[in-house]
Amino acid sequence: MNSPIVPVGDRSRINVRKGIVGLLLLMLAVLVLLPQGGWAEPPRPEKAVRGPCVRDPEWMRRNHMDFLKHKREETVREGKFVKSESFLACADCHTSRERFCDRCHAYVAVAPNCFECHQYPK
């Protein structure tokens, strides 16, 4: 009851400013200190043994998941099976699942469940 009245807004503003500064310092520290051990090696998936890819490789790198999903719907549900664009046809040029799919996927820690049922043809 007897405590002095402090404008709530002022006090909170000071705290927010301190918080932001602290956070920035922390981020800076992380940036400076953590890479000392060296950056993780970027993944180098195996080069295709022949080409060209069914789409522009640059495009495939970014969109293969949507592409595969789209093709999956078309193949399974509509029966539009395009052999050259099928999942199985990837193996024509990318001979190993471990050296092609898994290298990147392990690096980015994305685990699609394709291979619970599908087998990558070797």
Binding site: E58, K80, V82
Partner: peptide
């Protein structure tokens, strides 16, 4: 950006139905 398109041009492979 290279390889990033909002709208992809349709491509039809030779063995498409």
């Amino acid at each position: 950006a290279p390889g990033m398109h909002l709208v992809a041009a349709p491509q039809t492979p030779s063995d498409a139905p």
